[in-house]
């Protein structure tokens, strides 16, 4: 009796799961189709060459979105470069290199950071970081690549830390007995056993952090200065694709400037999709091993 009821509940549950998976998949597919449909008018050679140029001056006939593509890439890579070493440090501290009390506090703090809305980081950045950079370097307005990179680094730090943390938690029980038997200290265990076995975790953390940095809008919009140019230094203004969409979306909807947004949206969508596919490819061999 119980077993049939169980099975029925199980199959119902399975059905619910499958249909929600189908809905989610369909939604993503619908977004892609929608973007492609609206990008269709861009696909003649003339428009495309206009869009794929380095000159964004919509009121003088320049509709190039390449500065924004470059801005997004530079910004998210630099944020990753800042956040990744710090995240690895935090994880090492939490997994054996630091005393357990502060380590637990640190992890709790990082978990709390995930719940801070990005606009709050943006606000603090505008009032604290930007004036600080302006005073410290005396070059430009303070709204710059560096300000946004630091803001984004703070934003993606918890993503990277928690990804690494869960990977370490996975490996640790597997090697704990051996390590203790060999008389290893927790720090030695981390350095010689856990970290060398967490290669895929590191890669996954990098990929996720990059995706998060690439997709964020508020921080680049509020801190990067939004000048449509390729920055010559860390102290110059740049514009990310996400901020570009936010700035131009309310413009005349019959203009090429407005259409260029769909190109930006498509590029963003495809790049985050690629990043996620990369993540899937990274995860798969591990499952085979298990």
């Amino acid at each position: 009796m119980y077993r049939t009821a169980d099975r029925r509940a199980g199959s119902l549950w399975l059905l619910a799961c499958r249909s929600s998976a189908a809905v989610t998949g369909a939604a993503v597919l619908a977004i892609l189709l929608f973007l492609l449909w609206f990008s269709l008018p861009l696909l003649d050679a003339d428009t495309l060459s206009k869009l794929l140029s380095w000159d964004w001056r919509p009121f003088h006939g320049g509709f190039g979105i390449l500065p924004m593509v470059a801005g997004s890439l530079l910004l998210s890579l630099s944020a990753l470069l800042l956040a990744f070493p710090v995240s690895v440090g935090i994880c090492c501290f939490a997994h054996g290199m630091g005393p357990s009390g502060p380590a637990a506090c640190l992890l709790r703090l990082v978990k709390f950071m995930t719940s801070v809305p990005t606009v709050v980081y943006g606000f603090v950045g505008v009032f604290v970081l930007v004036p600080l950079l302006r005073e410290a370097f005396r070059s430009g307005s303070g709204f710059c690549w560096l300000a946004a990179a630091v803001g984004l680094a703070v934003l993606i730090l918890p993503t990277i830390v928690l990804m690494l943390h869960s990977q370490f938690m996975l490996i640790e029980p597997q090697v704990k007995l051996t390590a203790t038997a060999l008389g290893m200290s927790p720090a030695q265990r981390l350095l010689h056993l856990v970290m060398p076995n967490s290669g895929r975790g590191f890669a996954a953390a990098l990929v996720l952090g990059f995706g998060r940095a690439l997709g964020d809008t508020m921080i680049p919009l509020m801190l990067a200065g939004n000048a449509p140019q390729v920055p010559g230094s860390l102290l110059e203004s740049l514009r990310a694709m996400t901020a570009h969409i936010a700035l131009v979306v309310a413009t005349d909807s019959q203009s090429l400037a407005y259409l260029s947004l769909f190109a930006c949206g498509l590029i963003l969508f495809l790049s985050t999709t690629l990043v996620n596919l990369g993540l899937q490819l990274l995860k798969r061999p591990e499952e085979d091993k298990g």
Partner: peptide, 19 residues
């Protein structure tokens, strides 16, 4: 081209009043 771009009148006032 290097001009900073801000998204509203309020943001403009804030940026200029601080710089």
């Amino acid at each position: 081209a290097s001009a900073n771009v801000v998204p509203s009148n309020g943001a403009m006032k804030l940026a200029v009043s601080k710089d």
